[in-house]
Design a protein around this nucleic acid. Structure first.
Length: 552
RNA sequence: GCGCCCUUAGCUCAGCCCGGAUAGAGCGACUGACUACGGAUCAGUAGGUCGGGGGUUCAAAUCCUCCAGGGCGCACCA
């Protein structure tokens, strides 16, 4: 809105000053027009003069003063005055009431407020979680789940055709050991001596699954040949476990467009094709009976095995094939969300893709840092073997979906995170999600109490001149920018800050300005502001996947 | 040992990509505020060598470099 007018006005002033030779001819730098932190610095502050001055060899303030002279103020609606301040900022002060149209804008757009067509329908595939289907989802998967899902929501909101994908490792060595583990449990159940294989899955859930299997299908499978048993039982286990994972993800509000299976990639002979192509490209070498990817040539720490001496592919081969397939499926951009513990694998996969001729600059790998669970003031060690296992489902039941999502989304993913389980299990006001939800519930309460005879049509929002009202309008006005920044910056955590700011300003407005019982025109304007705030909170929370309750 | 990531207030964290004005929140602490729309609220105070040293710059939490702490990887497992 106004910001773009200011930007355009400044670009014109810049060109005009250069044309008149009042400023040296230098390319226009990319500059910012943003609301300054300190409101005494105006409604917008611009750093153009400071950035240009370096290229022009003039003091920043001189450039700024010149730009002011060439700027046509009438091109910027509601502009009050411009000031050159500090080291050379251009501060724009708007006339009182300039923010009022925001309320009308929000009310008119409704649930579409904050959405845009910025992405122009470009296709983005976001892969996240992709935990092995060998057991229940772990609490540590929550961070990536919340992040990936919120990111997809943000991307969709700003006009991208974004899709969420979960890669299912239902083939290979781990799959086989899963089948063997289930077989051992099944034999145990029939009273035979049996042992979970090395590297297998000793978790109790497989014993339960064995009971389910026995009840549904009996024990005949145990008389079949080894290969048939492994495949059949592995398949059974994967499908049941995956079903369970899907259910928990859905409970967490996480939606996927695709569950893409490694078995499909294997069936299409993707790994063989990858190996043939890499071999043909001269990027491989036989050594010790195995086939290696010469990834050190591309800067990786080590060469990596592609095909083991026993003829099996390492997991990274189908992984490369999977990513090649993602490119082939026609996406404009691929985003992978991986845990920090997998980062070592990234360079080899990216290199292989590059050598296969894929545009790897369109692939973004985002790494989520580890979370630490704190309980009773000490860290709870989470390891797959032996350690305390906390399933995602158990965690969500403890903490609640809203608190869990909001909490994980409050942090950027590239920071370690301490999650205090005691605190999380005891929802209290310390958890900011309640603060935001309370603001929403409060608004709903006001709207329930409004005089039904009061017309809701076209309130005069210019009446909203109280500082608390202005501050709230200002926060509502930045929401579309925040959504865009959250999507483009892969930073949905910004929206938790945004939600908190809107809630904070609403609470302040609430104690300073009465809504119900005021003179009709004022009441109408304030009710409009309340409804606009309600809409922004709803839209914001929806992008985070957090509910906006009407009562608490 | 090698590689990647992290270090900002008592605690948990934004800000760093793309350098700008006095480094911001929340929680905790302390002081205040209800005869009216939900006190799960509000107003205010205290609290910082931005891990440390160099460098680049008119300007560094932000860029470069060295160092120190911590995390995670470094399988013919995934």
């Amino acid at each position: 809105m106004r910001r773009e007018e200011i930007r355009t006005g400044l670009i014109r002033a810049y060109a005009a000053a250069v044309a008149d030779a009042m400023l040296p001819d230098a390319p226009l730098p990319s500059f910012s027009v943003d609301p300054p932190r300190d409101e005494a610095h105006g409604d917008f502050a611009c750093n153009l003069a400071m950035l240009a001055s370096a290229r022009m060899g003039l003091p920043p303030r001189t450039v700024a003063k010149c730009l002011v002279q060439y700027l046509s103020p009438e091109a910027i609606v509601d502009l009050d005055r411009l000031e050159v301040a500090g080291p050379g900022f251009l501060n724009c002060f708007m006339r009182p009431g300039w923010l009022a149209p925001v309320v009308d804008e929000v009310l008119e757009a409704g649930s579409a407020y904050g959405r845009s067509e910025h992405g122009a329908g470009r296709r983005i595939l976001v892969e996240f979680v992709s935990a092995n289907p060998t057991g229940p989802l772990n609490v540590v998967n929550c961070r990536a789940a919340a992040f990936g899902d919120a990111l997809v929501r943000c991307l969709k909101a700003v006009g991208y055709a974004a899709e969420a994908e979960y890669y299912v490792n239902d083939a290979g060595g781990q799959f086989r050991r899963l089948g063997q583990s289930l077989e051992a449990r099944l034999r145990e159940r029939r009273g035979e001596p049996a042992q979970i294989p090395d590297g297998g899955y000793p978790g109790e859930y497989l014993a339960e699954l064995a009971a389910v299997y026995a009840q549904e299908r009996g024990y005949q499978i145990l008389d079949e040949p080894l290969e048939v048993r492994e495949e059949h039982l592995g398949r059974f286990a994967v499908e049941r476990i995956l079903e369970n994972q899907k259910r928990v993800l859905l409970q967490f509000g996480v939606h996927y467009e695709h569950f893409y299976r490694e078995s499909v990639i294997r069936a299409e002979r993707g790994p063989e094709r990858v190996i043939d192509a890499l071999r043909a490209a001269g990027r491989t070498m036989e050594r010790d009976g195995a086939l290696w990817l010469l990834s050190t040539a591309g800067g990786d720490n080590d060469d990596r095995v592609l095909q083991k001496s026993n003829g099996e592919f390492t997991y990274r081969v189908p992984d490369i094939a999977y990513h090649a397939g993602k490119f082939d499926r026609g996406y404009d951009r691929l985003i992978d969300v991986y845990g920090q513990d997998h980062h070592g694998e990234v360079p080899a996969v990216v290199l292989a893709l590059e050598w296969l001729g894929y545009p790897v600059d369109r692939l973004e790998v985002l790494l989520t840092q580890m979370i630490r669970l704190i309980q009773g003031g000490r860290e709870v060690k989470i390891s797959k073997r032996g350690g305390t296992f906390i399933s995602m489902e158990e965690f969500l039941t403890d903490v609640g979906v809203d608190a869990a999502r909001f909490f994980f989304l409050m942090r950027t993913i590239d920071n370690h995170m301490d999650f205090d389980l005691d605190l999380a299990r005891r929802p209290s006001q310390e958890n900011p999600v309640y603060y935001v939800q309370y603001a929403h519930a409060r608004i709903c309460s006001i709207l329930r109490g409004q005089d039904p005879s009061l017309s809701v049509e076209a309130p005069d929002c210019r009446l909203l001149a109280h500082p608390a009202e202005v501050a709230l309008c200002r926060a509502l006005g930045t929401f579309p920018d925040e959504v865009l920044a959250a999507a483009e910056g892969r930073a949905p955590h910004r929206l938790t800050l945004c939600a908190r700011q809107v809630a904070e300003r609403f609470h302040a407005f609430y104690v300073q300005c009465r809504v119900l019982g005021e003179a009709a025109e004022v009441a109408r304007a304030r009710l409009g502001l309340c409804r606009a705030t309600q809409i922004v909170l709803q839209n914001c929370l929806a992008l985070l996947g957090v509910s906006a309750p009407e009562r608490m």
